[in-house]
């Protein structure tokens, strides 16, 4: 865990190597023109004359103090900006996952119980399609249908749900649908296969022979044991959701971390991107860790060493 964190920070810091010309430009703006004297001065200021490893540890020191540098364009602190924007991305991600779970788990159960029948075919058809659809394109199509044609929902923009809950939610419906669809398909597949596996076990047959209601067997006996693999797949969604959120936020004009990092790339604002990439990587790592812990907690057979 700790070594992995160090490797992640090192990889993100090494992006500095890839900047063409002098790394100074990463700090002052990549399109800026500097003369020799300014260059030397700035190299001194940003510790760029130190050996690479020393530079890395100096940078790491700042990162651990929560300092991710400043944006070249606005001059604002990257960390403060990210903290201000993170809630939007979290809302979007959580709504997307919420949508994905409430649709996918029942659909997965149905499709396992009615294996080979109409509900199963419909669910499988959906899951095959949903993993191949580009999420932003799904967003565009849903804008066309629900905003342009029907006029039910707003096309773009963001309203804080804490200030105006109804408007806030209306603005989040389409983005979370676009973001959650692929996750929904993946979770559904996992629920279906886990459920099928559990339903074939002996204790389910015992429950049936005891004369229990089928509904009780499915929800009390089978569901609990089949949710374990579902938790794993849920944790693995973190990386995908963060990546897709970048695209979906751009599409719907939500002021989250995604639009921040995209503006950073388009404006060649190195520190903005470096900071955001680091934060996203840590968040994915954190989600994976939580999944592992949750998994061990749910399944007493698993014990982690150390």
């Amino acid at each position: 865990m700790i070594p992995v964190m160090f490797i992640i920070t090192f990889l993100v810091f090494s992006l500095l190597w890839a900047v063409p010309g002098d790394p100074v430009y990463a700090y002052v703006g990549i399109d800026v023109v500097l003369d020799e004297e300014q260059l030397a001065l700035l190299r001194e200021k940003y510790n760029l004359n130190e050996p690479f490893l020393v530079q890395y540890f100096l940078w790491l020191q700042n990162v651990f103090q929560g300092d991710l540098g400043r944006s070249v364009e606005s001059g604002l602190k990257v960390s403060e900006e990210l903290m201000a924007r993170a809630p939007v991305t979290f809302q979007l991600g959580l709504f997307a996952l919420f949508f994905a779970i409430i649709v996918s788990v029942p659909a997965g159960i149905l499709s396992a119980v009615y294996r080979g029948k109409a509900p199963d075919h419909a669910a499988t058809f959906f899951s095959i399609g949903a993993v191949a659809i580009p999420d932003f394109w799904l967003g565009i199509v849903s804008i066309l249908v629900f905003s342009v044609a029907l006029g039910w929902l707003p096309t773009q923009g963001y309203v804080d749900p804490l200030e105006d809950p109804i408007q806030g939610l209306r603005h989040l419906v389409l983005p979370s649908f676009a973001l959650g669809c692929t996750s929904c398909a993946l979770i559904m597949r996992q629920t279906r296969s886990a459920m099928l596996e559990v339903l074939a076990q002996d204790y389910i047959r015992t429950a049936r022979s005891k004369g229990l209601y089928e509904l009780r067997i499915i929800f009390v006996h089978a569901l609990q044991n089949s949710l374990l693999p579902v938790v794993t797949i849920l944790g693995l969604q973190a990386g995908r959701i963060f990546a897709s959120a970048i695209v979906v936020e751009t599409l719907f004009g939500l002021p989250g971390m995604g639009t921040f990092v995209v503006d950073g790339v388009l404006g060649r604002d190195f520190q903005v991107v470096q900071g955001s990439v680091l934060l996203m990587a840590f968040m994915v790592l954190f989600c994976n860790l939580v999944t592992d812990i949750l998994y061990a907690w749910l399944d007493p057979r698993i014990k982690y060493e150390g």
């Binding site: 070594p3 992995v4 964190m5 490797i7 992640i8 990889l11 993100v12 992006l15 500095l16 890839a18 900047v19 063409p20 990463a26 990549i30 990386g239 995908r240 963060f242 990546a243 897709s244 970048i246 695209v247 990092v261 995209v262 950073g264 790339v265 060649r268 604002d269 190195f270 991107v273 470096q274 990439v277 996203m280 990587a281 840590f282 994915v284 790592l285 994976n288």
Partner: peptide, 25 residues
């Protein structure tokens, strides 16, 4: 394998973003 564990937390889109700001799109 530890290096692979570290790489795996970067989705391809995020790597592309990081590389683009450094070397251009």
């Amino acid at each position: 394998m530890r290096i692979m564990d570290a790489l795996v937390v970067f989705p391809s889109l995020v790597i592309a973003i990081g590389l683009s700001v450094a070397i251009g799109s």
